[in-house]
């Protein structure tokens, strides 16, 4: 509770400091809008040419795209400390400053950055999600809404957990973080499309190692009335927790890495 309070206060302050440069903020927010619209346009153009992907209709594809986009950018917005700012903190020595305070390191990292510009990306995602849901004729019930909320919530932790791989490598001062990018940004680009699009190795990667399929595709497919692999309905409520589990593992590894950092930093 106390941690949440600190997070809330930090966010308020960071927002205030970003609003010091309103013109720049507005420009960048618009730029984000344009970028994400571009991504959506690619899907629309594909649908225009191909009409469908396996059993998924155009509406279904917008639905999957929107779910991924909302979740990914919510994470980028609220967990910016991990998804973007961390390596800079290690390089500039700001991480040292965090160690000098009586709070958890991860808490403080999360409290030290926010990226409100992503709001437009989230909006594009929400638009695509809404459009997809209409075109697919989803009859919303409380249960379905809850499942989607659960998916977004667990997706948040999943994506943060994946970005923590990068942070952990960074603490161990490994330079090639592009490999970690394959899981994070690569995962986003791939799993905008339902998992059965991909051949077995990629399917395994995005189910077992970076379980986007479990967190997003299983519940989304259930809501669309086309259960993935014909799995029973209750799986849609259970599989998203894989995201939390992944985060838990990464959290432990992160703590271990921090001990290592403390014994070698200069």
């Amino acid at each position: 509770m106390d941690t949440l309070r600190l997070y809330r206060k930090s966010m308020a302050m960071l927002l205030k400091s970003q609003m010091q440069y309103p013109a720049s903020f507005l420009m960048q927010t618009l730029a984000q809008l344009v970028m994400e619209s571009g991504e959506l346009m690619a899907v629309i153009l594909l649908v225009d040419r191909f009409d469908h992907l396996n059993q998924w209709t155009a509406g279904n594809l917008y639905f999957f795209f929107g779910l991924m986009s909302m979740t990914f950018y919510l994470t980028e917005c609220f967990a910016r400390g991990i998804t973007g700012a961390f390596s800079g903190m290690v390089r500039s020595g700001q991480l040292d400053t965090l160690l000098l305070r009586p709070r958890g390191v991860l808490t403080q990292v999360l409290c030290s950055a926010v990226d409100p510009r992503r709001i437009t990306c989230i909006a594009v995602g929400a638009f695509s999600f809404g459009l997809g849901s209409r075109l697919s004729g989803v009859a919303w019930t409380a249960g379905k809404a809850l499942i989607i909320l659960e998916s977004v919530f667990c997706g948040f932790w999943l994506i943060m957990g994946l970005f923590m791989i990068e942070a952990i490598l960074c603490i161990h001062s490994v330079k090639s973080i592009e490999l970690a990018n394959a899981l994070t940004y690569g995962g986003r680009s791939a799993c905008e499309y339902p998992i059965d699009t991909f051949p077995r190795p990629l399917r395994l990667l995005f189910t077992v190692i970076a379980p986007f399929a479990l967190v997003m595709h299983v519940p989304a497919a259930w809501v669309l009335g086309k259960p993935l692999f014909g799995w029973p309905g209750w799986t849609a409520a259970v599989t998203p927790t894989a995201g939390i589990i992944l985060f838990g593992i990464m959290y432990l590894l992160f703590q271990r890495a921090m001990r290592f950092y403390r014994s070698t930093g200069s």
Partner: peptide, 9 residues
């Protein structure tokens, strides 16, 4: 200083 302030082991 870093050892005494808990940053380094």
């Amino acid at each position: 200083v870093k050892i005494l302030s808990g940053i380094l082991t």
